[in-house]
Amino acid sequence: MNKLIVSPSPHTHGRESTQSIMRDVLIALTPAMVVSVLASGWSALILIVVGVAACILTEFLIQKYLLKTPVTVCDLSAAVTGCLLALNLPPNAPWWLIVIGSVVAIGIAKMTFGGLGQNIFNPALVGRVFLLVSFPVLMTSWSDAGSMFGIVDAFSGATPLGAVKEGLANGLTLSQITADDLTFSQEFFFNAGGSAGELSAIALILGFIYLLCRRVIKATIPVTILCTVFVISGIFWLADPEHYTNPVFNLFSGGLLLGAIFMATDYVTSPMTTLGQIIFGIGIGLITVFVRYFGSYPEGVSFAILIMNCAVPLLNKYCKPHRFGEVKK
């Protein structure tokens, strides 16, 4: 017989590990990645591969040679960051762009805070916003989606949100702008031209359902964000449908679904209690709508999430779970 093992209870542990959770997130992102590759061809695939590789490599090099701590790239969290970053860039972005984004995301947003679990801001979003303000032209020239494995460098256009913003700025009304091409059904399944991950709402929702079934995330944050966006934009739209886009368009355009499902629910940078998560979601929804309607950028999800990330420690401190035996007031 071996020497007996002795340890405090519990003596058994659940099957979930950091790695299995991250693997589930990657699986949930697969439909969106597939759509992205189908829509934009090899350039999207290259972007994803390079993004994942760059993130993993950055984390590996920093842990191995700079911090000299155990290397933890096997937990797949860097791979998730790489995927999310790739899905946040235009599919035809050059490969070096995502390398820079990855270095910023992992090197600055994650490792400087102490690695996994310690960062305040979502690394992929920090990478994205860094690229957005550093390379505005590259980051906002989108290939027109819809060309299955088509030749990608054919045409550059604006995202639906970008088109709306530009049109409004030029004094047009919405009915004039949207006369051309925006229809809801198209957006829902495929065609809302935008960054790689913004293409298909249905693919993202599939991922969402998978995460819910695997109990990786709870629906609280995404649902609160989407409801807030729907309600707030609905109020504006009812007040003036000629200047404010309709709520359904707001839900399915831009990075809202990607952000709400995959970025805002990042464990590390979201609140731990349901009440905190609801406040967090409402905050993101409000900021998103306001940036879209009144900001200078056409899309505000990234900024909304990053801004609300700052509030997370405070939300964790003040939103306590319901303690056992506590009398409800």
Binding site: I5, S7, H11, T18, T72, G114, L116, G117, Y267, M272
Partner: peptide, 14 residues
Amino acid sequence: ETRRRPESNCIRCA
């Protein structure tokens, strides 16, 4: 069945 897993960073999953 029983040995503990190596400890890694808290990912604040709650």
